[in-house]
Design a binder for these strands. Structure first.
Lengths: 149, 149
DNA sequence: TACCAAATGCAATAAATTACCATCCAACCA
DNA sequence: TGGTTGGATGGTAATTTATTGCATTTGGTA
């Protein structure tokens, strides 16, 4: 989805759910939507603090959480202990680099399309799933070569 | 794999890789292997500090990391920002509860068996993958009912 | 049994996230 | 258009999770 469409979606969802459409929320959505990778809250804060001086780190964390609740943004699991965010909420597999922690999309969107049951025998209700491919991005493989034993 | 077999494996790997088989390592492996869910380092520390007074939190973190490096334990991604550990290193899908953060095994081990390419067009080298089913465990669904609107 | 490198325990530190609260402003209404 | 108000923000402090430095202890081996 384009950045403009995402802004449109943000506007509609804010209106229909009765939450304020603040400049910060617009800026955070823009910053997230224009990135091809899937940044952490802190990476977004770094991007934003230049463009919008006074933007608070707390606000970035808070707004992202709000977006997740509103279904505008998806939280992506990575192997590192920080949350990554994705403006594309449709189900698709991700690549995670074990070296630099970068998270990006796997091109083949039909890969790993599954039909999990709505409920397990144990009574665990399944509402979503994620397929994560783990390895080493091109950049890190190149560094690796230089320093490998 | 049973807890005894896991201890056996630990012994063999320690010997072959030249690392010490300490009481702490045995205790941490036992504590992990006997749990059906996949605890965090801190949960294991809580379990262990009762049985083995003097056991240090640092040691738990450090030993788990060592086990991962030795291939004895797998680190499991969850939606929460903490690492979970699994003594079963074979590839299998996990269930993650959005409410309590608990991570456990999905019974159907053939579910989500994929064959990712070794390399993407972008030059990302794939070495592993994970399938994570997300939802609400039975316990949390019951609590939910009581407090739902 | 004695040695030594590796492992441990403790304390301090770092990184990521959340809580708190005074101030501010987007949305709504007259 | 100006006033009102409840939700949102910014800054700091606190919390949670994880890591590091260093002195002490100990498993493995001669």
């Amino acid at each position: 989805m384009s950045e403009e469409k995402k802004q449109q979606q943000l506007k509609e969802v804010c209106r229909s759910r009765g939450v304020s459409l603040t400049p910060q929320r617009r800026a955070i959505m823009r910053a997230l939507a224009v990135r091809g990778d899937h940044p952490t809250a802190d990476q977004l804060y770094d991007d934003l603090s230049c463009q919008m001086p006074g933007m608070s780190r707390t606000t970035v964390y808070r707004v992202l959480e709000t977006f997740v609740k509103l279904g505008l943004v998806r939280k992506v699991d990575s192997r590192a202990s920080k949350a990554h965010f994705d403006a594309d909420v449709t189900l698709h597999p991700h690549l995670v680099c074990l070296d630099c922690g970068k998270v990006c999309d796997f091109e083949d969107r039909d890969f790993g399309v599954l039909k999990p049951p709505a409920m397990t025998d144990d009574g665990f209700q399944i509402v979503d799933y994620a397929v994560t491919l783990v390895g080493y991005c091109r950049q890190c493989r190149h560094h690796e070569k230089a320093s490998s034993d």
